[in-house]
C-alpha cells in the first residue's frame, strides 16, 4: 500500500489525469469532486485499502491529505511517504 495507490484511486474515481492529483487536492481544486463523487471515492478507498470508515469520516475526509491521514491512522498506509 502506497501514496501512489491512493492518488491512482482518487484519479480513477474522479476521472481526472493522475498528474493533477497531489496531497492538497480537494473539492476546491478539482471541479468533479462534488458530494456524490465524495461518497463514491470513500467507498472505493474502503475497498482498495480494506478499511471501514466511520460515517462521520465519509463526508469529512474531503482532501487527499485528510484521506491519507485517516489511512495512516488505520494502519493502511505507512506514516512516512
Amino acid at each position: 500500500m502506497s501514496d501512489k495507490l491512493l492518488y491512482e484511486t482518487v484519479a480513477r474515481v474522479l476521472r481526472v489525469p493522475l498528474e493533477t492529483i497531489d496531497i492538497d487536492s480537494s473539492p476546491e481544486t478539482i471541479a468533479r469532486w462534488d458530494s456524490m463523487a465524495q461518497v463514491a471515492l470513500m467507498l472505493e478507498v474502503e475497498s482498495v485499502f480494506s478499511v471501514r470508515l466511520h460515517s462521520d469520516s465519509l463526508m469529512a475526509l474531503n482532501s487527499v491529505r485528510k484521506i491519507r491521514d485517516a489511512l495512516v491512522h488505520l494502519g493502511a498506509l505507512p506514516e512516512a511517504p
Partner: peptide
C-alpha cells in the same frame, strides 16, 4: 446504513 445518514442512499 452509513450512506442513508449522509446521503439518503
Amino acid at each position: 446504513s452509513r450512506l442513508w445518514c449522509i446521503g439518503r442512499m
